[in-house]
Simulated assay, not measured.
Amino acid sequence: MSERATIYGEPIPDSELTFDARKGDIFKVEEGKKEWVQIMMFSDSKRYIRSSDVDFTTEQPVAPSDPEMLNKFCAKVKTAKRKATNEAALKYAENIRRQRIFERLLFDRYILEAFRKFDIPATKPSKLVECIDDSPIYERRIKN
């Protein structure tokens, strides 16, 4: 297994909507099939990872406790939301459905970037900051 796994918008290898998860990232599994695992992303959109790229875990990562870092991370999340909303509105001003899909995709990418910037494994659900999500159980992680 490589250090990364592709997250797909649909359970097909040539899906248009893709970005990368990294080893150690943890996402809640919505549904598992033979070849694909359906995960929930930060935007509450369902995405897909190949089953061969994930391991089952009930591990809950320890959230950083530094209040200053948490405040900066939360500010980054809020900026990601605004940025995704604005960019999607500009690109798909005439098509609300496409705008919402693109907004969620951008939000997921920007949140992953925030986790990378702070050198924290991405987790969904996340106890790191309430401004992302507050749900309790971690079910899958990218293979070590």
Rank of each mutant, 00 (worst) to 15 (best):
S52D: 07
F115C: 07
S52Q: 11
F27S: 03
V129W: 00
K78M: 12
F73I: 05
M40E: 11
P136V: 00
W36K: 10
I111C: 13
A93V: 07
G32S: 14
K76C: 13
L112V: 12
L112F: 08
E94S: 07
G32R: 13
A5M: 11
L106Y: 12
A80R: 10
P61A: 14
R4D: 08
A5S: 15
R100W: 02
K127P: 04
D44M: 06
F56P: 00
G24I: 08
V129P: 00
D20F: 15
G24Y: 03
S15A: 14
C74N: 03
N86I: 06
A93P: 03
Y138G: 09
K46H: 09
V129C: 07
A80N: 06
I39K: 01
D55V: 10
E130I: 05
E139H: 08
C74W: 00
F102L: 04
C74E: 13
R47V: 05
R98P: 06
I132D: 13
R98H: 12
A84H: 04
K127G: 10
S126Y: 11
S45W: 03
V77K: 02
Y8V: 05
S65C: 07
P125M: 08
F102R: 11
P64C: 13
F27C: 06
K127A: 12
R141V: 09
C74Y: 02
K127L: 13
D14R: 08
K83N: 09
K72G: 05
V129Y: 02
D133Q: 04
K23P: 00
T85D: 14
D20T: 15
S43C: 08
E130S: 14
S126T: 15
D66S: 15
N86L: 13
R82E: 14
R97T: 15
I137C: 01
R140F: 11
A88N: 01
R97M: 07
L70G: 01
S43Y: 02
R100S: 05
D55S: 12
E94K: 02
R141I: 04
K124I: 14
Q99D: 02
I101L: 14
G24M: 06
Q99L: 00
E103L: 01
A63H: 01
E35F: 01
Y8H: 14
E16T: 07
L105H: 14
F102N: 07
R4K: 15
K81I: 06
F115R: 13
D44A: 11
I111L: 03
E10Q: 09
K46M: 04
K28M: 04
L112R: 11
I132K: 06
F102W: 10
P67R: 07
A80C: 09
A84V: 11
P13V: 08
P125G: 08
T57P: 08
M40G: 05
I26Q: 06
